[in-house]
Design a protein around this nucleic acid. Structure first.
Length: 801
RNA sequence: GCGGACAUGGCGGAACUGGUAGACGCGCCAGACUUAGGAUCUGGUUCGCAAGAGUGGGGGUUCAAGUCCUCUUGUCCGCACCA
């Protein structure tokens, strides 16, 4: 057994200062390769998930370096956010200190795993040098009209007095104290992300990423195409008061409208206040809705509540029918026009609402509507006949959908419309530990941006991390920060005291790695051009949908203002699977059955830990942690170590030529695709063969060590030094020769009428005719009997008789 | 409910654009060396005594299907009153 403790420490120390592991800007000869592993979230120690997540990226980086690439493989800390702030509130520790210590710790632990990050390019999102540029990006957004402040409805924890993001309030409970979250109106900064919907969809199409992750993003963007229909609003007597618009993707049901529903918040109601006879009831319902928590609204999906709007009716433009108006909280003000046409026969929500409020039903498409609505999916699939729809009656619904849309547009009743579910990005939090906004409120000039020269706007120090009674952020209590001069008029003004959300710093960090110490811009344009898009971006899948969309958004914006050379931040994104504990639950700090990677490294060494985790499952698959089977890896590395003792001869031996070429070919493609489990198995197969033969030549061993190095960097580096008296990092990854990946003598499977008859040992260089003859003889048939031959060279031969 | 992914031995998992299913490892069985072994080495290990049957189940395409099509069952994930 080799002394892994001594060996691993030795190499880790070497690597932490080795220039050959660093990226070189504008390398004169080497092509670039950018491997990115997601930011460390600074909260505690590295856990098993990190071992699963980082090692394939490290293997890829090491492999690419040996292949002669100029590799950028950086790491940093996502340090603004809850862990540091919560620790501050709980223990009083200064978040600056919390982050500094935490970052130092995870970097140290990264070295113990043997990760070959470029240690000269590290930073945290809470570093002033970094958030200066986060603030700068916000300023550009603001100046280009992509950031605005508006009243908005947000999640709020009444106990903590703070606004919560959706993910901080999962299940309707506050992440911190567990109280019920309510919805409140607040002044909110929004970024105009919705405007980028179509561009983001383009990014989603172009990126190389697992289909289910792409689908989640398309879902989040939620593109839909339909018709925006204009309806006149009239009073009881039929006098026109105004008009409104609704959005529908089911224009084919337009003859079945029996009522119209507005979102409670819809501004049309306020405009027509005088004509509404029961405005007090409307107000009451509005208040009730506002108080219902998100969770409440979700848990009562089936219960339809609402309120009739007395005194106003809508006119169906196609029929001229006068239908009643309702408000209900199932209609969202933020989507479409905040109003829908209701066709109870063909929409289950409308059906339930109509039942509840005794509204008539009109069926316009064939099917059984007696118990529930016949919805779009069903009637379109069956292409049902139209009913009660004037000249369209009797038509197929697929034809009618187009014909009715045409009529609506030609008559000016409406227009085609594309809508997106995605909303503008609510961008502020009432928290201490985040980027301050470079914004000032001036009584004379209004909202004023700070001058770029004055960045960074430093986060003031404090020891009071709690919001005030109004739910304003802790920094609102710091007068020296709040009170300032207006950059425009010089008069006294107040600063924005909210801070940016955790997502901000992580929405552009891959750009900063390219030029991490640049004091003049977020990153030098030429360097950005040189490094281009991230070739492979690895990391967990927990917040992947939103994080990657935010990344797309900012990259697109930065591209449009000429700050970066491309719209696509990442060429390929791979999501690491989870490591589950023995109960099948996610292994994390909170998990009781959690095993620390450092524990495993201490016991077996980093090379074993790295390989064992990745032998358990593929990169994107979840796997259950177990020590079971780790002996297999221990034995394997032990055998590798002993290869030193059986070195004999030079060059590549005839005996191992094919095996070595097969091995190099296999692992090369496996490293590119982060398929470490099969790469390990290929290495095992090779060593097995070597053991069988009892010898390995010097050159074979040299190439094998290079092949195994990305997986087990320590042991291979040590052996390389011992046997070759050289540093493995100066070597080049071996090439394989395709012609030498197939043996001369092969076992060719022979089939008769598609049935396996056995295999025949045959010289693969023979002509097809010679092979056919030999195989025919093997299965005992004559050339006359054969109707057809299927021959796939080196794979199979099949005779049809 | 909608959308996506997946389903292979006792277990984790292999199988390139359809081409010998079960690689590799664990476990298990037998043997060797041993006073002994939970150490090491060697051999075996999908099921079945066998003919044969086998990739959740039914149908199909093909010379050939784990792989493609169709229906169906189950598991996991994402979204969830989005009009």
């Amino acid at each position: 057994m080799y002394n892994f403790k001594e060996i691993e420490k030795k190499w880790q120390d070497k690597w932490s200062n080795d220039e050959r592991l660093r990226a070189v800007d504008f390398h004169p000869t080497k092509p670039k390769f950018y491997v990115l592993y997601e930011f460390y979230n600074i909260s505690g120690n590295l856990h098993m998930g990190h071992l699963k997540g980082t090692v394939p990226a490290d293997a890829l980086a090491r492999y690419k370096r040996l292949k002669g690439y100029n590799v950028l493989f950086p790491i940093g800390g996502d340090s603004f956010g809850l862990p540091a702030e919560n620790a501050a509130i709980k223990t009083g520790i200064d978040p600056h200190k919390f982050v500094e210590d935490g970052f130092k710790r995870v970097l140290e632990q990264s070295k113990q795993i043997g990760l070959s990050f470029d240690w000269t390019r590290t930073f945290c999102t809470s570093d002033e040098d970094y958030y200066k540029w986060t603030q700068w990006i916000f300023l550009q957004l603001f100046k280009n009209g992509k950031a605005y402040k508006e009243q908005g409805v947000v999640n709020f924890c009444p106990k903590c007095q703070t606004v919560l993001s959706n993910e901080d309030s999962q299940g309707g409970k506050c992440d911190r104290c567990g109280s019920d979250v309510i919805q409140v109106n607040r002044n909110v900064w929004f970024l105009k992300m919705k405007e980028y919907s179509e561009k983001l969809l383009g990014n989603v199409e172009r990126i190389n990423m697992a289909e289910h992750l792409k689908e989640a993003q398309r879902n989040w963007i939620g593109k839909s195409e339909g018709i925006q229909l204009k309806l006149d609003l009239v009073d009881e007597a039929g006098n026109k008061l105004d008009h409104m618009e609704i959005y529908t993707t089911c224009i084919e049901t337009v003859y079945g409208i029996t009522f119209v529903v507005l979102a409670p918040e819809n501004a049309k109601l306020d405009q027509l206040k005088q004509n509404i006879k029961n405005f007090d009831k409307i107000t009451e319902y509005r208040q009730k809705t506002a108080l219902r928590s998100e969770f409440d609204r979700m848990s009562q999906v089936k219960d339809k509540t609402g309120c009739k709007v007395e005194g106003i009716y809508a006119i169906n433009p196609l029929t001229g029918d006068k239908v009643p108006l309702y408000i209900a909280d199932f209609v969202l003000n933020s989507y479409g026009t905040g109003a829908v046409m209701a066709v109870p026969c063909h929409d289950q929500r409308d059906y339930e609402f109509a039942k509840e409020f005794n509204i008539p039903f009109v069926q316009v498409i064939d099917g059984d509507c007696s118990k529930c609505a016949v919805e779009k999916a069903e009637y379109l699939e069956k292409n049902q006949k139209m009913l009660n729809s004037a000249e369209f009656t009797g038509m197929n619904v697929l034809d009618a959908k187009k014909a009715i849309a045409k009529k609506v547009i030609e008559n000016g009743f409406g227009k085609t419309q594309v809508n997106y579910k995605m909303q503008d990005w609510s961008f502020n939090r009432q928290r201490y530990w985040g980027e301050p906004f470079p914004i000032v409120f001036c009584p004379k000039c209004g909202i004023v941006a700070l001058d770029e020269k004055d960045l960074p706007l430093a986060l003031p120090k404090t020891n009071d991390y709690l919001p005030n009674a109004n739910g304003d952020s802790p920094i609102s209590k710091i007068d020296s920060f709040v009170n300032c001069k207006c950059p425009k008029c010089g008069g006294s003004a107040r600063r924005e005291t909210d801070t940016m959300p955790n997502w901000a710093g992580s929405s552009w960090y891959w750009l900063r790695y390219v030029d991490p110490h640049n004091p003049n811009m977020l990153a030098d344009y030429e360097k950005l051009k040189y490094w281009g898009s991230v070739d492979v971006y690895t990391g967990g899948t927990e917040h992947i949908t939103r994080h990657v969309l935010y990344a797309f958004f900012w990259q697109n914006f930065l591209y449009e203002i000429g700050a970066v050379p491309t719209r696509d931040p990442f060429i390929r994104k791979m999501g690491s699977g989870l490591i589950l504990d023995d109960e099948g639950k996610k292994m994390s700090k909170s998990s009781k059955n959690g095993v620390s990677p450092l524990e495993v490294i201490d016991k077996y060494g980093s090379d074993v830990a790295r390989m064992h985790v990745h032998f358990l499952a593929g990169y994107e698959d979840n796997c259950q942690w177990t020590f079971k089977g780790i002996e297999g890896i221990v034995n394997f590395l032990d055998r590798v170590w002993k290869l030193q003792d059986i070195v004999k001869g030079d060059g590549i031996s005839k005996e191992h030529e094919v095996e070595l070429n097969v091995l190099i070919k296999k692992v090369s493609s496996d490293y590119e695709n982060l398929k470490l489990n099969t790469a390990i198995s290929a290495c095992m197969i090779f060593v097995k063969k070597i053991k069988e033969d009892g010898f390995i030549t010097r050159e074979e061993l040299r190439q094998f060590l290079l092949v195994l190095n990305p997986l087990a960097p320590h042991i291979t580096s040590e052996m390389y030094e011992r046997v070759f008296n050289a540093d493995l990092l100066d070597a080049t990854f071996p090439e394989y020769d395709e012609a030498k990946t197939v043996k001369k003598e092969i076992n060719l499977p022979v089939q008769l009428n598609g049935k396996m008859k056995g295999t025949i040992l045959i010289d693969s260089t023979l002509s097809q005719e010679q092979i056919e003859n030999a195989c025919r003889e093997f299965v005992g048939i004559t050339a006359e009997q054969v109707k057809k031959v299927i021959y796939v060279p080196n794979r199979i031969i099949n005779f049809i008789i």
